[in-house]
Design a protein around this nucleic acid. Structure first.
Lengths: 175, 175
DNA sequence: TATTGTTATACTCTATAACTATA
DNA sequence: TATAGTTATAGAGTATAACAATA
């Protein structure tokens, strides 16, 4: 474990018992919440999303969930359908449709009709959309490197493994 | 696609390499997103929050983040101040104030003036608020037991440890 | 009859800046 | 001057049900 002196060195994490102590904030123990997976996941989400919004600045896809994923999917899979995007997002179709509406209006994506099914749409990226996708990918890489730098190197692989597992299992609950 | 003959059978959980394979959804690999902590945390949040909302039904504190935490804090710490709640929530004071407004209007919480500082408020729970807090605690316990049942027993302690660490480190970023 | 996607409605949360009252 | 909290405003996401068109 390196002790690379960071400019803003965080509180001493040298205490091996730190992981076992009850959480204390503003002088109050957060007893009930401590121990609840849901509370941590929801709290983490707020902070990560706020940081991401700040990094996205005023790009078309800032704010909310789903826009980034939808953009990158369309960029990677020309002809993908809204319902497929909805499946990845675990959102309903009205919500997904509105996300796509925006991107079409912003000139990032264009809608076509699927060759195989007249009901379905075929989504493709525009040049402007592709440029944005590249920018977004770079921002995500930066956030991973800069924002999550506090995750101990020895924890990274394990954290990612558990997150992936959790995500895949959650999908089955979603139906 | 009509060539959708590919078997949909997801990887059996028995496969030890499942953790290493790229994620595939709706027949598409989610390459760039796979590997990003932010994406998993944000996706997990959506599902957990939706499940929680469903369990909360039409209780006063359903939907959104912060209401549950605020209610439980006030129930546990009579006289707590809005700014302390804001610190736990990692939210600004306008947002926190509005959460409290609601609870006051719903008769769950009452506002007083701090004995030590005329500027500050002293929040206390009402009988109705206390009853609700008890219900909420039970719902959270149920969700932890039922919804997160898919987290492998051997992963639980480690996942919680990493989540707690991550949460505490994130606080320093919040400022 | 089931599926793909849209429309309409009503309810939320969020961010920012400007304001007051007290310390 | 700094802190505690409020008000005002503008912008966005969310859930639900009902709808049209195609399979």
């Amino acid at each position: 474990m390196t002790t690379d002196a960071s400019p803003h060195s965080p509180p001493p994490d040298t205490d091996p018992d730190a992981d076992l102590r009850p959480l204390e904030i503003a002088g109050h123990r957060i007893d009930i919440l401590d121990g609840a997976f849901s509370w941590f996941i929801r709290s983490l989400d707020s902070v990560v999303s706020r940081d991401l919004d700040a990094r996205m600045g005023h790009l078309e896809v800032a704010k909310g969930k789903g826009k980034i994923t939808a953009l990158l999917l369309i960029d990677d899979y020309p002809g993908i359908r809204p319902s497929e995007i909805a499946e990845v997002l675990m959102r309903d179709r009205p919500t997904t449709g509105r996300i796509i509406d925006r991107m079409v209006q912003a000139g990032l994506v264009s809608r076509g009709v699927s060759a195989h099914d007249q009901r379905a749409q075929s989504l493709t990226i525009t040049p402007a959309g592709h440029d944005l996708a590249e920018k977004v990918r770079e921002i995500i890489r930066q956030q991973e490197a800069e924002f999550f730098d506090f995750i101990a190197p020895e924890d990274r692989a394990q954290f990612m493994r558990i997150l992936r597992r959790t995500y895949m299992r959650m999908r089955s609950k979603w139906t």
